[in-house]
Amino acid sequence: MDMEVESYLRPPEIEKPPYPAKVVTLATGGKMVVRQVDRDAVPTLLRAIKPTVEIARDYYDVVGARLYAELIGWYRYRVRDEFCLVGQIDGLLVGIVNSRSYSPHTDISLHTLAIERGLRIGAHLFASKMEYSIEYLGRDEVLITAESPIGFRRWMIEYGLEKREGQHELGGATPYALTREMYFKNKARLVAGERPVPKEIMEIAEREIKIASERDIREKILGAAREIQ
């Protein structure tokens, strides 16, 4: 690799304080660890995203394909100031969220992908990346858009976001913003998680990001075939 050319192509990066891991208790009673992953995790995450690229239901294809590209871009130093949080239950990957920092004041929310459904995993992970941007990175606001009706309901309606002029980086529908004030107003209602994560639970999460089989991922998203009597 011509590192001289590479140095022109690699975006600079803002130093970020890490996101402290937390554990969320789900409606099932299951414990989901939410933690930040670094570039090294990307090849593993891509294995989970790949099957979603062909699922049209709820715009998984759009979200999956774009998230796939964003994570590769980050892995290969082509996206500036991206970060990624994951949700794991007993080590198994159940969801991924990513954002990127645009300025010391503003972050841009990119994608939310829930692999396990019906448990507010997407909502918990979305709330976690807002928590990171506002509370730990000290941003004043996060720019948000939605690509699916579910996203629209979860973000725009549940947080009561403000409309913004111009375009979101993803180039889709009208951008909205979550402000610091709005975040703290909604925090008790929408942001879950306890810290520190008990040692034994954290060890399982960090030991390995387990990825379900392609078939299982499809079933989790589309619903399992039912054995009708």
Binding site: V24, T25, G118, V191, A192
Partner: peptide, 18 residues
């Protein structure tokens, strides 16, 4: 098709978020 627990929907301090 989902098993829920009283902890997850009621007794856990953050159950109101679920």
């Amino acid at each position: 098709q989902m098993k829920i627990t009283e902890e997850g929907i009621l007794t856990h301090p953050q159950a109101h978020i679920n």
